[in-house]
Write a protein that binds this DNA or RNA. Structure first.
Lengths: 210, 210
DNA sequence: AAAAAATCGGTGGTTTTCCACCATATGAGG
DNA sequence: CCTCATATGGTGGAAAACCACCGATTTTTT
């Protein structure tokens, strides 16, 4: 018997999922939570095997909550859940220990199979997620949004920026002038749609460029 | 009907896998290949849905072959296969487009489930692989293994830094002086073991603080 | 072959970050 | 009561980042 908890701030989503698991005999939806606080409170008092966890919650983002839950209850298996648009967080969610990933418009068969797979300790990534991740790895189109294509030099400079080198240090390392690195920097911030170094690094990591 | 090809230079492994799929009705093992060359030749003449691919082959390594096959036959789903020890290649294999990963000593139920899952376009990583990857991810924390504890204000400032606000803008937003934000900034860079804003953002994201 | 992008480089200046070295106040805990 | 961490604030200066506005090759794309 797999004991399931659903965490999502949209009651409609929760209802839909409950509907799905009323038909299954091996999976029992034990409860629901509309916020991170609620979820943590529930887990204090109820043993749970699998959690379906929305990425956007009112009080804490899904990544953080995922990490927190796993630090408190390491045996729990977490499946991330998002709408089709919020894909940039998937890899981070997985990094934080999520074992599965689904979109809110996934067919119910997928939901069931994902819960079963994850409960067995394996991981389950839905087809659409796979495609997104591959697109990312290939530095190609991410449906709706582009992953900026960097040139060799730009990628090189970016890597050194992330390694905390200053413009001057990068110039020395690559035997180029200060101005050249500055130019590349400008192009990078522009391509990644950032305002400054903070955004540059953030977006680079979100795009999986690091 | 799922058409399967097994690529492995050990005939014993191939025989074992054939045994497993003689019992399944929805999966048909169409052929076998003992080398990369053989595999590519086979694929020229036979339509295949799923490949179980050993990582170590005499003429080409599994990673390369995986990439090559996917470039020629993008619709094929590939499951990596290794002995328990060769785990270091898993992430690269996945990066190269493998959808699943199994160990040679996996129980036959896993084999079957993996093929079915992968054929549906989803990805399947066996429990042991998951554990290895997580262990790896945790080992990559070279910057000290404890997550620095931030104060409320620090966390707040950090979030705004990551949102690309400048010190001045943060001060305005929080109705504090410039100097105060600077102090918090210094504390943050120190706590996160960074040299500058780039490192601050990077480490914050690595620690999952964002 | 022409156009576009990438690579390299520069001047000159403004803004932001980084840092040292502080000071005050408050609240929690030994 | 005293210490420690937190939060707040300051001065002043050096270093780095940001930006505009350039020009000149080379490479890639069309």
């Amino acid at each position: 018997m797999i004991r399931l908890l659903v965490v999502d701030d949209h009651p409609i989503v929760i209802d839909g999922i409950r509907q799905v698991f009323q038909e299954t005999e091996d999976i029992l939806m034990m409860g629901e939570a509309l916020s991170a606080r609620e979820a943590l409170a529930f887990l204090e008092n109820h043993p749970i095997d699998v959690i379906i966890l929305d990425i956007s919650l009112p009080d804490m983002n899904g990544m953080k909550l995922c990490k927190k839950i796993l630090s408190l209850f390491p045996h729990i298996h977490i499946i991330g859940l998002t709408t089709y648009e919020e894909t940039s967080f998937i890899s981070r969610m997985i990094k934080n220990g999520a074992k599965g990933y689904l979109f809110k418009n996934s067919p119910k068969e997928e939901l069931i199979q994902a819960v079963r797979t994850v409960a067995a300790g394996a991981s389950y990534l839905t087809k659409a997620v796979n495609e997104k991740l591959i697109a990312k790895a290939l530095n190609k189109r991410e449906l709706g949004r582009f992953i900026p294509k960097l040139t060799r030099r730009e990628a090189e400079v970016l890597e050194l920026i992330v390694e905390e080198l200053t413009t001057q240090e990068i110039a020395d390392r690559l035997c180029l002038s200060n101005s050249t690195i500055e130019t590349h920097r400008m192009h990078l911030t522009a391509k990644l749609g950032a305002r400054n170094t903070a955004g540059l690094v953030k977006n680079a990591m979100m795009y999986g460029l690091i």
